[in-house]
């Protein structure tokens, strides 16, 4: 709220006639500019300020001679190419981080895609019956807590090859929250919808697509969102051990050749990619389950 100060009254003698002044035509645009300014001030400025402060602290803390970790300026000078050109190709093993992220994403796509399909189907079946739910839930709750890497030796033994093993680790990591959430979503389908389906005599397949999936979509997508986050955690860990050209192996490789600044850049890529994946699944979920809750 602003208070407009009233002008002190001028002497009434000076003005001979009224003058018509054209009003300025710009307030609209300046309003819009003001709105943009407000968005910047409220949404964009705070993270930028925090980031700058954190980078400054980091810079101050590690810029001394003989510090164990590189400072942000070192990262920029030593690993600039990784930051500025993500998609260079100099050889089969010497490629940009963008390519490496894409390679990892491909594995995640297989593992997570499989987990999503199997998880939703298994969750749908288990959620239908109280007895099955009681039987399976404790097992899922236990398996859910097993860290991704703990699955790796078993899967290496089973598949005898690193590529399917990595995919299996993603699958087995991501599937539990998907199953558990889908089952919960199926349990939460209102009896009204079941009655409608019963009166219409929808068969199992029709019930699945027309009632269950849309009704349980918010639950399913929160499971998928947790799952995709876990997949991304698992792929980095799995690649560090199984090799290949993914982003996880890149970190391991950089560590072995003491390129610490490269690792920091890779961490940045991983973080941003994970963030994008999470938002992507969240966004798809919102679009798909639009209208599910009145």
């Amino acid at each position: 709220m602003s208070v407009t100060a009233l002008k002190p009254k001028a002497a009434p003698v000076a003005k001979p006639s009224a003058q018509v002044l054209p009003l300025p035509v710009t307030p609209r645009r300046s309003n819009r500019a003001a709105a943009a300014g407000r968005v910047f001030a409220e949404r964009i400025a705070p993270p930028l300020v925090v980031l700058t402060v954190l980078l400054a602290i980091w810079q101050l803390a590690f810029s001394g001679v003989g510090s164990s970790l590189p400072a942000p300026s070192d990262v920029w000078t030593q690993s600039r190419e990784l930051i500025t050109s993500p998609f260079y190709v100099y050889g089969t093993q010497d490629i940009g981080l963008g390519w490496r992220v894409l390679t990892s994403l491909e594995r995640v796509a297989y593992g997570f895609g499989l987990a999503a399909v199997v998880g939703v189907l298994v969750g749908a079946v288990i959620g239908q019956s109280v007895l099955m739910m009681r039987g399976f839930d404790p097992i899922f709750q236990v398996l859910r807590t097993v860290p991704p890497l703990a699955w790796l030796p078993i899967s290496l033994a089973a598949f005898m090859d690193s590529r399917p093993s990595a995919i299996f680790v993603i699958f087995i990591t991501a599937i539990w929250p998907i199953i558990i959430n889908t089952a919960a979503g199926v349990r939460a389908i209102p009896q009204d919808y079941r009655n409608v389906a019963a009166v219409l005599r929808l068969n199992q397949v029709e019930f699945f697509w027309k009632i269950m999936v849309p009704s349980a979509a918010p639950y399913i997508f929160s499971g998928l969102r947790i799952g995709v986050g876990l997949s991304w955690l698992a792929i980095v860990a799995a690649e560090m051990l199984t090799g290949g050209v993914g982003i996880g192996f890149f970190i391991w490789d950089a560590w072995n050749s003491s390129r610490l600044t490269d690792i920091i850049v890779a961490l940045l890529y991983i973080g941003v990619t994970g963030f994008v994946l999470d938002r992507l699944v969240g966004w798809i979920g919102r679009v798909v389950s639009r209208g599910t809750s009145e």
Partner: peptide, 14 residues
């Protein structure tokens, strides 16, 4: 035997 339910039971996503 079509039923009109007390709370309409329309599917909200359709």
């Amino acid at each position: 035997r079509a039923v009109v339910f007390q709370n309409h039971s329309l599917l909200p996503w359709l």
